[in-house]
Amino acid sequence: MADRIIIACCVMLAVAYFYGTSQIPSLEIGDPLGPKAFPILLGIALLLATGLLFVEHLKDIKSADPQLQKPARPDRRHLPVLGVVVVWMAFYFSLFETLGYVVATTVFLLPLMAWFNRGKWLANTLSASLFSVGSYVMFAWLDVTLPQGVLPF
Protein backbone atom coordinates (compact mmCIF):
# COMPACT_ATOMS: atom_id res chain seq x y z
CA MET A 1 0.00 0.00 0.00
CA ALA A 2 2.72 2.42 1.06
CA ASP A 3 4.57 1.67 -2.17
CA ARG A 4 1.58 2.71 -4.26
CA ILE A 5 1.35 6.03 -2.44
CA ILE A 6 5.07 6.64 -2.99
CA ILE A 7 4.70 5.87 -6.69
CA ALA A 8 1.74 8.24 -7.01
CA CYS A 9 3.59 11.00 -5.11
CA CYS A 10 6.72 10.59 -7.23
CA VAL A 11 4.80 10.80 -10.48
CA MET A 12 3.05 13.95 -9.28
CA LEU A 13 6.37 15.40 -8.14
CA ALA A 14 7.97 14.64 -11.50
CA VAL A 15 5.11 16.36 -13.31
CA ALA A 16 5.36 19.39 -11.03
CA TYR A 17 9.12 19.43 -11.51
CA PHE A 18 8.79 19.30 -15.32
CA TYR A 19 6.28 22.14 -15.10
CA GLY A 20 8.69 24.14 -12.92
CA THR A 21 11.47 23.44 -15.41
CA SER A 22 9.37 24.75 -18.26
CA GLN A 23 8.89 27.97 -16.30
CA ILE A 24 12.63 28.75 -16.18
CA PRO A 25 13.30 31.53 -18.67
CA SER A 26 16.00 30.62 -21.20
CA LEU A 27 18.43 33.30 -22.22
CA GLU A 28 21.16 33.15 -24.78
CA ILE A 29 23.86 33.81 -22.22
CA GLY A 30 25.88 31.51 -20.02
CA ASP A 31 26.83 27.95 -20.89
CA PRO A 32 25.44 26.13 -23.94
CA LEU A 33 23.36 23.69 -21.89
CA GLY A 34 21.58 26.36 -19.91
CA PRO A 35 19.70 26.04 -16.64
CA LYS A 36 17.18 23.46 -17.89
CA ALA A 37 19.23 20.52 -19.12
CA PHE A 38 20.28 19.04 -15.78
CA PRO A 39 16.77 19.34 -14.28
CA ILE A 40 15.29 17.59 -17.31
CA LEU A 41 17.69 14.69 -16.76
CA LEU A 42 16.66 14.60 -13.09
CA GLY A 43 12.98 14.52 -13.95
CA ILE A 44 13.54 11.58 -16.30
CA ALA A 45 15.65 9.84 -13.66
CA LEU A 46 12.86 10.22 -11.09
CA LEU A 47 10.36 8.64 -13.47
CA LEU A 48 12.77 5.77 -14.16
CA ALA A 49 13.34 5.18 -10.42
CA THR A 50 9.59 5.25 -9.86
CA GLY A 51 9.16 2.69 -12.61
CA LEU A 52 11.74 0.53 -10.86
CA LEU A 53 9.80 0.82 -7.61
CA PHE A 54 6.68 -0.28 -9.47
CA VAL A 55 8.50 -3.40 -10.68
CA GLU A 56 9.74 -4.09 -7.12
CA HIS A 57 6.18 -3.64 -5.89
CA LEU A 58 4.79 -6.13 -8.43
CA LYS A 59 7.45 -8.66 -7.38
CA ASP A 60 6.53 -8.18 -3.71
CA ILE A 61 2.88 -8.84 -4.45
CA LYS A 62 3.76 -11.99 -6.38
CA SER A 63 6.03 -13.40 -3.69
CA ALA A 64 3.77 -12.38 -0.78
CA ASP A 65 2.32 -15.31 1.09
CA PRO A 66 -1.48 -15.04 0.96
CA GLN A 67 -1.69 -16.84 4.33
CA LEU A 68 0.34 -14.16 6.07
CA GLN A 69 -1.73 -11.21 4.88
CA LYS A 70 -2.86 -8.31 7.09
CA PRO A 71 -1.61 -8.60 10.64
CA ALA A 72 -4.73 -7.16 12.32
CA ARG A 73 -5.27 -3.41 12.35
CA PRO A 74 -2.08 -1.38 12.49
CA ASP A 75 -1.59 0.61 15.67
CA ARG A 76 -2.24 4.24 14.82
CA ARG A 77 -2.71 5.69 18.31
CA HIS A 78 0.32 7.92 17.90
CA LEU A 79 -0.85 9.80 14.80
CA PRO A 80 -3.26 12.26 16.47
CA VAL A 81 -0.70 13.05 19.16
CA LEU A 82 2.09 13.58 16.62
CA GLY A 83 -0.27 15.77 14.61
CA VAL A 84 -0.86 17.94 17.66
CA VAL A 85 2.92 18.11 18.29
CA VAL A 86 3.49 19.35 14.72
CA VAL A 87 0.74 21.99 15.00
CA TRP A 88 2.11 23.00 18.40
CA MET A 89 5.57 23.46 16.88
CA ALA A 90 4.16 25.63 14.08
CA PHE A 91 2.39 27.69 16.74
CA TYR A 92 5.67 28.02 18.66
CA PHE A 93 7.44 29.23 15.51
CA SER A 94 4.72 31.80 14.85
CA LEU A 95 5.16 33.29 18.32
CA PHE A 96 8.94 32.82 18.42
CA GLU A 97 9.79 36.44 17.59
CA THR A 98 6.79 38.21 19.14
CA LEU A 99 6.96 36.52 22.52
CA GLY A 100 10.72 36.21 22.48
CA TYR A 101 12.83 33.09 22.86
CA VAL A 102 12.66 32.59 26.63
CA VAL A 103 8.91 32.97 27.05
CA ALA A 104 7.95 31.17 23.85
CA THR A 105 10.25 28.23 24.56
CA THR A 106 9.06 27.78 28.13
CA VAL A 107 5.46 27.89 26.98
CA PHE A 108 6.32 25.45 24.19
CA LEU A 109 8.16 22.95 26.37
CA LEU A 110 5.78 22.73 29.34
CA PRO A 111 2.76 21.07 27.69
CA LEU A 112 5.01 18.67 25.76
CA MET A 113 6.71 17.59 28.96
CA ALA A 114 3.40 17.45 30.80
CA TRP A 115 2.16 15.00 28.18
CA PHE A 116 5.24 12.88 27.60
CA ASN A 117 6.63 12.97 31.13
CA ARG A 118 3.35 12.80 32.96
CA GLY A 119 2.83 13.74 36.58
CA LYS A 120 6.30 15.14 37.29
CA TRP A 121 5.21 18.75 37.59
CA LEU A 122 8.14 20.05 39.56
CA ALA A 123 10.81 18.41 37.40
CA ASN A 124 9.08 19.51 34.21
CA THR A 125 8.59 23.13 35.25
CA LEU A 126 12.14 23.38 36.49
CA SER A 127 13.72 21.83 33.41
CA ALA A 128 11.59 23.83 30.97
CA SER A 129 12.35 27.20 32.57
CA LEU A 130 15.99 26.47 33.37
CA PHE A 131 16.57 25.23 29.84
CA SER A 132 15.03 28.33 28.26
CA VAL A 133 16.92 30.80 30.41
CA GLY A 134 20.17 28.79 30.38
CA SER A 135 20.24 28.31 26.61
CA TYR A 136 19.38 31.99 26.07
CA VAL A 137 22.32 33.07 28.22
CA MET A 138 24.65 30.53 26.63
CA PHE A 139 23.79 31.54 23.07
CA ALA A 140 24.04 35.22 23.93
CA TRP A 141 27.55 34.46 25.15
CA LEU A 142 28.24 32.66 21.86
CA ASP A 143 27.11 35.77 19.96
CA VAL A 144 23.98 34.09 18.65
CA THR A 145 21.12 36.56 18.98
CA LEU A 146 17.80 35.01 19.84
CA PRO A 147 14.66 37.13 19.81
CA GLN A 148 14.23 39.07 23.02
CA GLY A 149 10.48 39.61 22.65
CA VAL A 150 8.47 40.73 25.63
CA LEU A 151 11.26 40.45 28.18
CA PRO A 152 13.15 43.64 29.01
CA PHE A 153 16.64 42.03 28.79
Binding site: T105, L109, L112, M113, N117, N124, A128, S135, L146
Partner: peptide, 22 residues
Protein backbone atom coordinates in the same frame (compact mmCIF):
# COMPACT_ATOMS: atom_id res chain seq x y z
CA UNK B 1 13.42 10.82 30.83
CA UNK B 2 12.62 10.84 27.12
CA UNK B 3 9.65 13.10 27.86
CA UNK B 4 12.08 15.84 28.85
CA UNK B 5 14.89 15.08 26.43
CA UNK B 6 12.81 15.01 23.24
CA UNK B 7 11.22 18.46 23.75
CA UNK B 8 14.73 19.76 24.49
CA UNK B 9 15.98 18.45 21.15
CA UNK B 10 13.08 20.20 19.40
CA UNK B 11 14.01 23.49 21.09
CA UNK B 12 17.74 23.07 20.34
CA UNK B 13 16.96 22.38 16.68
CA UNK B 14 14.84 25.53 16.59
CA UNK B 15 17.67 27.65 18.02
CA UNK B 16 20.17 26.16 15.58
CA UNK B 17 18.07 26.92 12.52
CA UNK B 18 17.00 30.36 13.71
CA UNK B 19 20.65 31.22 14.35
CA UNK B 20 21.54 30.79 10.65
CA UNK B 21 19.65 33.80 9.27
CA UNK B 22 17.22 34.81 12.00
Amino acid sequence: PGGILMPFILAISTIGIYAING
